[in-house]
């Protein structure tokens, strides 16, 4: 086993371990922190694959954005410092079964079809990503990019409408 493979298995074990801890801990803030470590582990996996741009985006969006939002909402909830009650046994069994079935399905799929080597290295440079993103020609992503922008704009306008205080009526 080469050093590269050892690192891969270490990172994967870290991701899965943190994921399991995030599910099983009974303190909600710790759960968020384990989720965060799991996501950092995914970013580490991207770094291992040498797709640095995706790794950095993973950190900015998921770790710096979404998990911070989750933590903020935990801060603002009542009694979030208390330990949560143990889930009933039936639910535990169902959860374990669901996980086992998921594993079985994935394993069967991989076993049957396996991974095929495409034979060509994919180009991940930032320049390439940028030009592809705003390309209007063949296989360009200009239209999806703009549609997503409109979606985000709508979300932002919605936030402003919700947050805006209506002016008192003129008398």
């Amino acid at each position: 086993m080469s050093a590269s493979q050892i690192i891969f298995y270490l990172i994967s074990a870290f991701i899965l371990g943190c994921g399991i801890l995030a599910m099983t801990t009974r303190k909600i803030f710790r759960s968020a922190i384990w989720l965060l470590f799991s996501l950092v582990g995914v970013a580490a996996l991207y770094f291992w694959m040498q797709v640095e741009f995706i790794a950095a985006v993973q950190i900015v969006v998921y770790v710096g954005g979404i998990v911070v939002l989750i933590i903020f909402s935990i801060f603002l909830t009542q009694q979030s410092g208390k330990e949560m009650p143990k889930p009933p046994l039936g639910r535990n069994i169902a959860a374990v079964l669901a996980v086992l079935f998921g594993f079985a399905l994935t394993f069967l799929l991989i076993n049957k079809y396996g991974f095929t080597d495409q034979g060509k290295a994919f180009d991940w440079s930032v320049n390439k990503i940028g030009t592809q993103m705003l390309n209007t020609g063949e296989q360009g992503f200009a239209l999806p990019f703009e549609v997503v922008s409109i979606l985000l704009l709508a979300a932002m306008v919605g936030c402003i409408v919700i947050a805006m205080r209506s002016k008192p009526e003129e008398k």
Binding site: V40, A56, V60, V63, G64, V68, V126
Partner: peptide, 16 residues
């Protein structure tokens, strides 16, 4: 090769 972006990305972790 993403130098500046790397710094912004990692520094967003310090808030955690």
């Amino acid at each position: 090769n993403i130098g500046v972006f790397f710094i912004t990305a990692i520094s967003s972790l310090s808030v955690i």
